Computed example of a mutant assay.
Amino acid sequence: MSALDDRGLIERFLEMMRAEAGAAGNTIAAYGTDLRLASELLEGRLGEAIAADLERLGAAWQTLARTTVARKSAALRRFFAFLADEGLRSDDPGGALPRPGSSRGLPKVLSTGDVDRLFAVIARRQARVPADPNDLRLSALVELLYGSGLRATELVSLPRNAIAPDRPYLILKGKGGRERLVPISDRARAAVAAWRAHVDVGRAWLFPSGKGHLSRVRLHQIIRALAAEAGIPPDRISPHVLRHAFATHLLEGGADLRALQAMLGHADIATTEIYTHVDSKRLVELVNSRHPLGEALARK
């Protein structure tokens, strides 16, 4: 194929990423750069590359950081899968691309016991006399972080009336402009209603601060102070860790990974798989108890 052919194929792939996958602008730009550089290294023959060509690319990437190689490989694998799906190739050579071990550690994990201790502190605070409205705000913040998996930015920038008492969900626009439906539990709606009664009706935000809304930095500080009071090392917790706990505990309770992907707003299921850490013991137990062969063995 000519260089022009590669350019056309790359543009078709990127257009698919925009229209169907809903990828963020930065992701599309990074994929485009990686694909064009690979095309240059293969002298405009990326679209017709064979396994040996991709092994040559891997050799050329040896001096790069593992995370960079992982990103480039991911971009090319998606590109070749797209060509195969569209019938533009009869094969998919993506398996020849390097798969470097990621240096990214597993997300920090809170146990259900840790979460229980956080809510116990909140309950003690709310029982104090006289009552402090900030304790109601704390309850609403934690209920939404742990009960709905909101990102910190999404949480602090919620409009005052975003959560209705009679509607068990919220429609959010997250990364890449993707809209998603977020479930709001009865507990969270009750906590929000109790807090909103203390928010001036003239304020635009559910969690106002100064002339705007609560900052992500201040939210981080509030969550760490709560952890310290609950006897949890503050460096083990953050708003993001509570979001992760939401996903992990739902998965451990039997939630479907695709449903979690939708609730978390991930464009790629691979992100959800990393995000929702599940220990190997539970996976083994799941196979033994749910797999048809395991059930057949139990009946013998």
Results as ranks from 00 to 15, higher is better:
L4F: 00
D6H: 12
R7C: 00
L9G: 00
E11I: 03
F13R: 08
L14V: 12
M16G: 03
G22A: 13
A23K: 02
I28C: 06
A30L: 12
A30Y: 12
Y31V: 13
Y31R: 08
G32C: 07
D34A: 03
L35Y: 01
S39N: 03
E40L: 09
L42G: 03
R45K: 15
E48T: 00
I50P: 00
G58F: 06
A60Q: 15
T63P: 04
L64T: 09
R66K: 10
V69R: 08
S73Y: 08
S73M: 05
A75D: 06
L76C: 10
R77V: 09
R77I: 04
R78C: 09
R78T: 11
F80P: 01
A81R: 14
L88C: 02
S90M: 07
D91Y: 12
G94D: 01
R99W: 04
S102C: 03
K108F: 08
V109A: 12
S111G: 13
G113M: 05
R117K: 13
F119M: 09
I122F: 09
I122P: 14
I122K: 15
Q126T: 13
P130M: 08
A131L: 13
A131M: 13
N134C: 06
D135C: 06
A140T: 01
L144S: 05
Y146C: 10
G147C: 05
S148M: 05
E154Y: 00
L155A: 10
V156H: 04
P159F: 02
A162P: 03
L170C: 06
K173E: 12
G174L: 04
K175Y: 01
K175S: 08
E179Q: 15
V182P: 05
V182Q: 11
S185V: 07
A190R: 14
R196T: 06
A197Q: 15
V199W: 09
G202R: 14
R203Y: 02
W205E: 02
W205Q: 02
P208M: 04
S209C: 08
K211R: 11
V217A: 08
R218A: 10
L219A: 07
Q221H: 15
R224M: 08
A225T: 05
A227F: 07
E229W: 10
G231E: 14
H244A: 13
F246W: 01
A247V: 01
L250V: 04
E252L: 10
G253N: 10
A255Y: 14
L257Q: 15
L260S: 07
L260R: 05
M263Y: 05
L264K: 02
A267V: 06
T272I: 05
T276G: 14
V278A: 00
D279N: 10
S280F: 14
S280L: 15
K281H: 11
L283K: 11
L286E: 11
L286M: 14
P292E: 10
L293H: 11
L293E: 07
R299K: 11
K300E: 10
K300C: 07
